[in-house]
Write a protein that binds this DNA or RNA. Structure first.
Lengths: 337, 337
DNA sequence: GGGCAAAATGACAACGTTGACATTTTTGTT
DNA sequence: AACAAAAATGTCAACGTTGTCATTTTGCCC
């Protein structure tokens, strides 16, 4: 492969002069610069990032550690946000997946360390509190879609599930609904609990009594292999003697099954029953007819801004706040009357 | 950071001896080996892959180029297959996304070249014929979920849409259906055309006449911003004077909307109408009630076996065949009577 | 005990860059 | 024309590994 030495010889200058041209350093005579650039083009020289790293210890590579990809494959959006930031900022991305395995994770951190990456984003596929297994690896790290256990000081960026659910509940209440069903996500999910808490708080603030709300558990068991009772709970809710006029779902996939239950029971959405979701998983929310009213998890922004935060950490900047929380805006579509 | 020189000094041996221990080379006295390993542990030494690459020109890094992630985010599964192979084979993965932009793609290949990666997988998010923009980059490359234009000699691995659709159609026919609707994917998709061709061939083989099949166009326009007519076409098909008894859909997302149309029309699945999809996008196929009968695209296997093929190409092995095609098995669930 | 071969270990330079500093050339001012 | 400063370019060693070959040590056989 063509090296800087080859270019220097062909251009009649020193290696250092070629390096200056490649790196855009100042004080290179324009004629020399053009001659060197011509040779680079002719010989097809591409700098060796490994050699550069060995000499300067400056890495332009970031690592992404993902835990596992759940059945709602949002990792695409978080990872895409990171990638787009990386591309805009001249960074390359190493990707590794732990599949939730601690030993694998430790191995991944070691591999990243052996690549001397500049920093890493630890991306959780669902909102939770974690403790990454960096061991004594000192890679600058930002947690995405999760936050650290109290003993750990990693900066993080996560969604505001509580605010989103609270706003969405108020949206439903403001439309006049007074009998509301709620099908909850697996309680093991932090986001699930936040969303439910916000729902409870909002209906309490609106003066609804316990008999006005009907909360059902839709998913339970170990994450990744949950028991799904959504469909049957939705059927039960909708065909009761005093059914709700609005059904709030822990996420869009739950809403999806609620739709099937409603339609199967001959109900019209939103005439007979309003249904709302959470997360704005567009594969579902836009495919449903009518389109789903929901609160949007800012996945892309979590990735993009998480990467930006990592850059600041790598550069030694003191972050204004360690834990950033991004809002989940209500997206009003046709499913809520 | 701790280097091999530090370890050598602390262990009282030469750099080369430490290198022998780290790399598991033979002819190292057991006592020496243990002493060196102890020092490595104590000092927390992690080899520098960059230095290793500079000296030996042997890379353990693979690149993944993805074009863009469509609204059915299967990239997770293809990429996961690649990642799992990489992890099992001690490889690290660089990931870059072109978003379908030729200039971005050229830049990605250059970046990969600057990292001196061993090889790359070019992953298309939908089945198609392509010509990657490697320029004169000579990186060993395998195409995944696509095949090369005739002028290009890249090995590839892709799904057998025709076989899957043919088998699925026969499955439907074998269940006695004789009036069959078909809602097709965007004709711009190679997979869409293959699936439709197979459907036509299978119904012709079964002796059905043109009046027995009703083919509708569900999606059209530029990929990524298609016009979606699935729901209305499904409604039209299902509420006609002589509706089909089975509805075949170009993919699972089309099946999803077909379900909504059927349920909205008061039809029971599969009693009143059988519905089948294609690709086994489990976010949809398992969430539908009853669960969807479909043909499964082998995304994970495309990734995993694509990576394995790349390894053989990198190692200079002559592949038995340049273009591998993986079957799409029928997955019989409850939606087809 | 000596000699020879195998095992174990070390020396050295090389890979491709770049930081630090030196040297040469050019330009401007007196 | 001379001198000083700025611009341009070059020299050299260093980063952290490993391939190649040399040297030393050990073990076995006669």
């Amino acid at each position: 492969m063509v090296s800087i030495v080859d270019v220097a010889k062909a251009a009649g200058v020193s290696n250092k002069t070629v390096s200056r041209v490649v790196n855009g350093e100042p004080n290179v005579k324009p004629a020399t610069k053009e001659r060197v650039q011509g040779v680079i083009r002719d010989l097809g020289y591409v700098p060796n990032m490994a050699a550069r790293l060995v000499r300067s210890s400056r890495s332009l590579t970031l690592g992404i550690v993902t835990d596992f990809i759940s059945t709602t494959p949002y990792s695409g959006d978080i990872v895409r946000g990171i990638q787009e930031w990386a591309e805009e900022n001249g960074r390359t991305v190493l990707l590794a997946n732990t599949n939730g395995d601690r030993d694998k994770e430790r191995e991944i951190w070691r591999t990243f360390q052996s690549h001397r990456i500049g920093g890493a984003l630890y991306v959780s596929m669902y909102h939770r509190e974690i403790s990454p297994s960096l061991g004594d690896v000192a890679t600058p790290t930002v947690l995405v879609n999760c936050h650290p256990e109290p003993a750990n000081g990693y900066p993080s960026i996560e969604p505001n599930d509580y605010q989103g659910s609270h706003d969405l509940t108020r949206y439903v209440l403001e439309r006049g609904h007074r009998r509301i069903g709620y099908i909850r996500l697996n309680p093991k999910l932090l986001g699930a609990e936040l969303r439910l808490s916000a729902f409870r708080e909002a209906v309490r603030e609106a003066g609804l009594s316990d008999s006005d709300v009907d909360i059902r558990l839709g998913m339970e068991g170990p994450i990744g292999s949950e028991t799904n009772r959504v469909y049957s709970q939705a059927q039960d809710l909708l065909t009761g003697s005093n059914p709700p006029t609005a059904l709030m779902c822990g996420n869009d996939e739950i809403a999806f099954q609620a739709y099937l239950a409603a339609l199967g029971a001959g109900l019209r959405i939103p005439e007979d029953i309003s249904i709302v979701g959470f997360d704005d998983f567009q594969t579902v929310s836009l495919a449903l007819k009518p389109e789903l009213t929901t609160a949007a998890l800012p996945y892309y922004a979590l990735g993009y801004r998480g990467a930006d935060r990592l850059m600041r950490v790598i550069e030694g900047e003191k972050l204004r706040e360690d834990h950033l929380v991004l809002e989940c805006p209500v997206v009003a579509r046709g499913s809520c009357k």
